[in-house]
């Protein structure tokens, strides 16, 4: 059993399509998110994890290096092309969040697709987004309790949505059988060709 090193056209196209579906959801999600955000108590942060979901879902489906980063960038690019209100900032957020996920999957050498790894990836993406928020949103100048609330809410939301929800979503998708076409082929399958047929 061997894994092709670089991503094939099929891998890339499927990842981008998944990302675009999420970017359409983001686009619908955006106004809702802003509306909740007006109140300032970070309720909005609970659904922030939705923005990282493309990365974990795509990775769990294709299971190759680079997919999480590509998915996050493509989702941002998609939303940007459809006139997403957050604009260029999305591309940079996509980059740091994607890198956050990617690093976690890389730590497990892209071999583990367990629930807790997915949740860790969600944490990775959260850390990435927080780093950029320091520059972009001056979040370090918030009152300490408020900053804590923001971080905790975003983490909880991310773990639940990017981690748990994405994991079970892909599990449900696996049941439909469509993901089988991209998973590596086992040695047994090749062996069967050799066996005598009667």
């Amino acid at each position: 059993m061997y894994m092709k090193k670089s991503l094939t056209l099929t891998d890339i196209l499927i990842t981008i399509v998944i990302a675009f579906i999420f970017s359409v959801i983001y686009k619908l999600w955006g106004p809702l998110y802003s509306l909740v955000g007006v109140f300032g108590l970070h309720v909005d942060q609970l659904i922030y994890g939705m923005w990282f979901m493309a990365a974990t879902v795509a990775f769990l489906i294709i299971r190759k290096p680079g997919i999480a980063l590509l998915a996050e960038l493509a989702a941002a690019q998609g939303e940007f092309l459809f006139g997403g209100q957050w604009g260029i900032s999305l591309l940079l957020y996509g980059l740091v969040q994607g890198v956050g996920c990617e690093l976690v999957f890389a730590m497990y050498r892209y071999k583990s697709y367990r629930l807790y790894v997915t949740c860790l990836a969600a944490v990775g993406a959260t850390i990435g987004s927080l780093l950029l928020d320091v520059f972009y949103g001056y979040i370090d100048s918030l009152a300490a309790w408020n900053l804590t609330l923001l971080i905790v809410n975003r983490l909880i939301g991310a773990i639940l949505i990017t981690g748990v929800f994405a994991y079970y979503l892909v599990e449900a998708l696996d049941k439909t059988g469509v993901t089988k076409a991209f998973r590596p082929i086992s040695q047994d399958d090749y062996q069967m060709l050799e066996d005598e047929v009667n």
């Binding site: 802003s34 909005d44 209100q85 100048s141 918030l142 009152a143 408020n146």
Partner: peptide, 22 residues
């Protein structure tokens, strides 16, 4: 039509900092 969300964005990006910033 596309400009309308900008006002919401203005509010949502500024209010947290205004109310709870140091």
């Amino acid at each position: 039509l596309l400009a309308i969300p900008l006002t919401i964005i203005f509010l949502s990006s500024s209010t947290t900092m205004i109310f709870f910033g140091e």
